[in-house]
């Protein structure tokens, strides 16, 4: 899949943002006033910034409101609803904390639930796609949520939680990678089923239907070299998991915490880049790209 920067930023930052909101909604850390304000600003910057960045990916962002109509069937629509509900709830809850010094626990709790749900619905947009076997696994939501929560925990200053969640995220990510490498092959979809020609012998893509490029090739036929991907995987694990954990084990300082966050985010971006770039859409089979 084409690793569109808007979608990578969107999923990583909104994930972290909602992760932070999740913790804030549960009152972790229990902040009020300007401290709360700072936390909420960061959370909203990430979550809303991510959402806004996702609209760059739309052909007609001016019609974005229409995306709320299909919550009964569409995960993207559900994501929209969850995000809006989460943001409203957390807005109310945050307002209480910041301006009224009130901890409206039920609203916070519901906000947390919807924050997590938002990340879940986001992940389901990818998970639901049978066309991309690498994503079509429960590990995808697990990965999204573990990243979201570990990022959230980091930002929320929950060192222990952060270390545990990062370890979980790393574990899930590694399994997802390994499983993903065989996912297309294991999916039962190949050029033979794509063309129905398998009974006659082995099928090979010959001339493509056009010599130039098109939307499908630009969007779906992206490939990453094996070596390149191994390298990036190591770098990304190093950045989102190993380095932050090492840093968190060091005596706490704001600078080091910041460094840990930065490293985690950079690693998460790399991992997310790989998430898209490595994903093989079955349509590539038709073009002999798999």
């Amino acid at each position: 899949m084409h690793p569109a920067p808007s979608v990578i930023f969107f999923t990583v930052f909104s994930g972290i943002g909602f992760g932070l909101l999740f913790f804030l909604g549960l009152g972790i850390p229990a902040v009020t006033g300007w401290t709360a304000f700072a936390f909420f600003v960061i959370a909203y910057l990430c979550a809303v910034g991510g959402l806004i960045s996702s609209t760059f990916h739309l052909g007609h962002p001016e019609r974005a409101l229409k995306a709320f109509t299909q919550w009964r069937s569409s995960w993207l629509s559900r994501e929209g609803w969850c995000a809006v509900i989460a943001l409203i709830l957390m807005g109310l809850y945050g307002a209480g904390l910041v301006f009224f010094g009130q901890h409206w626990g039920l609203i916070g709790f519901l906000g947390s639930v919807f924050s997590v749900l938002t990340v879940f619905t986001t992940s389901m947009i990818y998970t639901q796609l049978k066309t991309i076997p690498r994503w079509n696994t429960p590990l995808t939501p697990a990965m999204f949520m573990s990243f979201s929560l570990s990022g959230g925990a980091l930002l929320a200053g929950q060192t222990t939680w952060a270390m545990v969640l990062i370890a979980i995220a790393a574990a899930i990510q590694i399994v997802l990678w390994m499983q993903g490498d065989g996912a297309l092959a294991g999916s039962g979809t190949d050029l033979a089923t794509a063309t129905g020609l398998g009974t006659g012998g082995s099928v090979r893509a010959f001339e493509p239907p056009h010599t130039g490029t098109n939307y499908l090739l630009k969007e779906f036929a992206y490939t990453v070299g094996r070596k390149h991907s191994q390298k990036l995987r190591i770098i990304s694990i190093g950045l989102f998991a190993v380095l932050p954990v090492v840093l968190l084990l060091l005596p706490f300082s704001h600078f080091i915490a910041l460094l840990a966050v930065a490293s985690h985010v950079a690693g998460a971006l790399a991992a997310r880049w790989l998430f898209f770039a490595e994903a093989e859409h079955v349509v590539g089979l038709y073009y002999g790209k798999r």
Binding site: L197, G201, V203, A205, P208
Partner: peptide, 10 residues
Amino acid sequence: RVHSYEVQPE
């Protein structure tokens, strides 16, 4: 779009 494939029988 019109693709083309080669099939190699046994």
